[in-house]
Amino acid sequence: MSGGSRCTPMTLPQAIEEVDMRRFTYMIPKSLDEAISMHVAHGERAKYIAGGTDILIKIKERKAAPDYLISLKHILGPDRPLFSQETGELYIGAFVTHRRIETSKTVRTRYPILHDAVKNIGSVQIRNVATIGGNLVNAVPSADGAIPLIALDAEIRIHGPKGRRSMDLLHFFLGPGQCDLETGEILTEILIPPVLPRTGSAYLKFGRRQAMELPLLGVGVVLSLEEDFKTCCRARIALGVAAPTPMRAIQAEAFLNGKPVDEKTLEEAGKIAAEESRVRDSIRGVAWYRREMVGVLVKRMGRKALQRIHETHGRR
């Protein structure tokens, strides 16, 4: 076959040394227990890596300097979201890539809020390798993956040197870049509880640009209606970049509960959510504008959630 010479290893004259990557040892465990014991053995000198799109940049920028990178990519488990017909739960392994979530038909049809969010994270190239668990443990205030999952009441499971534990995702975030993970612990699973009947949801990443950009604001709304298709029986409003960590607008949710969902109540819910938000000035936008937009976008996403309920049930 011709063209073989193209692939022969060669030394370039004056090959430019890659200046930015620091030397490390890459370890490829096949099980969680193996990964955890590797971490225990190397302590602070070790870091876990899944897709690597964040940690490799941190290493290049000298913001992290691990001597050992422990890969979580080869630990066996389902590589896509799994919906259980029996329990009505959605199970997402933490090492599932954003692209697998984006292209999942189950997610697109049953959890449109999650589809809305993941399809605009990074780029195709990033989504093909970056994992949902990685998005969560980085704990940035803007984490697009976290907001819809919080609005869906997601629970997470964590494995570590001391065993397993579960918690709700909302309380996993402690501050910018900080989450409730102890040394050696791994976020392994995300579990979304059954969604009520007559539920609609929507997420908007609001910013100047959709791709390759952090949002100015992220707004996710999940609405469930009574049998009359008017009265709200459960509302979830989750906000990104509206506080140091992802947050829920609890008072706005409570306001909607038991009320008919219409332009007036959504408007009011938006105002309450804006008051609850703890927005601040940043390079991407000023606080007063963000607060205004929380109101506008909560209303807009509420409208979209409502529209989706009617679409799924063949009404209007």
Binding site: Y26, G52, T53, V124, Q125, I126, N128
Partner: peptide, 12 residues
């Protein structure tokens, strides 16, 4: 699948 080769480890 399209990936960024600058963020993809050769070991992988």
């Amino acid at each position: 699948m399209a990936v960024n080769a600058c963020l993809y480890l050769a070991a992988e």
